[in-house]
Amino acid sequence: MRVPGLVMAAAIGLCVLQAQARDYRYSDAHLHYVDFFQESAGMDVLLKRMDAAGVDHVMFSGIPVAKKWDENEPKRPRYYAGDDANAYWYSATDTLIAHAYKQVPAEQRHRFHPFLSGFNPNDKNADAHIRRMLELDPGLWQGIGEVFTRHDDLTALIHGDAPRANNEALARVYHLAAEYDLPVMVHSNITSKRERNPLYLQEIEDPLRNHPHVRFIWAHAGTSMEIHRHQEKLDFLLSNLERMLETYPNLYIDLSWTMLRPYLLDADGKPDPAWVHLVSSYPARFMLGSDVVGRFDSMGEYMHGFAPFLDALPEKVAKQVARDNFLAVLPRTVQAELKTRTAP
């Protein structure tokens, strides 16, 4: 049942007044340790930025593709969209993640949650590759992703066919994820830059329906900054999320920084009542992410940018969204280990 606008606005105002003294601890549910050239500022910098930002835990992943510096390009690109050169699937990204994780001091490792991402989602051998990686480092990997499927212009730059979240190769990966109790983060745009309708929605709904035992994290709810540049705000997003969260109990939403505006906060920086109501209605299903890529100086800015929206939520819900919901989707063995660390 929808709450009338005036009542909702009054409730938000009361929550904000009550929230002035809140102090949040965070889990960054969407972090790439390396960039599109498989380079990183390094673990020392990351740990310093986490401590400065109040980030207790991070989803720790690579980038599943590498951007090519093409023979015909006079300058090395700085980003995948920097020129017309292709990108290609890069499995060694997971080797870099495992190596970096093992360099972390033992007393800090519980803060890092490595996710496997270095595989081609169009290849029906992908599940066999993932299984090998899991067996090479038993207990190291705690999730799968970010899996790149529909991903703005990057989709067109990657060699081969456009990946889909509902293809046969990924179905095999999802079965493996269920076997190992691993959450899966999927980047699957809800639409293209030009279509003002949920063009690709079925591609994420199919796995949600067909794999009910897999916990899916939908990266920034199918939106992207590139889509927003062309369409600003998707007016069909909220209603579809309401329906999907009700229909699929295995759906979790990553509210990365690209969701902050134009959805969670309005042009004046005030929380949107409809989104406050949605998150409050599903308090265990949303989490925050910086989506930083290889460089970490902006982590604090991105994570703390959610504070006005968090302040509009009931305090218990706000703390769940800020920190605890990400931890709750990790494998049950990991959750048990984390509880032992906080037990008296």
Rank of each mutant, 00 (worst) to 15 (best):
Q38H: 13
A29L: 06
K67P: 12
R196I: 04
W275D: 09
D70I: 00
K193T: 03
G269S: 08
L265M: 10
T149H: 07
Y26V: 12
I158T: 12
V45K: 15
R295V: 10
R150D: 07
L17S: 12
Y302L: 13
N167P: 01
S188H: 12
A343W: 02
R164E: 14
E195Q: 12
F286Y: 05
D123R: 06
I253W: 01
E246Q: 15
A106M: 09
E301Y: 13
Q18A: 14
P105G: 10
E337M: 10
P64F: 11
G118N: 07
H230S: 14
A53G: 03
L31K: 00
V317T: 15
Y33K: 04
R76A: 09
G5K: 11
S61A: 15
A343F: 08
K67H: 09
R215H: 13
D152F: 01
I253S: 01
M244Q: 14
Y282K: 08
W69C: 04
D206Y: 10
W218V: 04
P283N: 11
C15W: 10
W257A: 13
E315A: 13
A312W: 06
E246P: 01
V321K: 01
V45P: 00
A106P: 00
L47E: 15
R150K: 14
L234D: 11
S188V: 05
M299Q: 14
R49E: 15
D70R: 10
V279L: 09
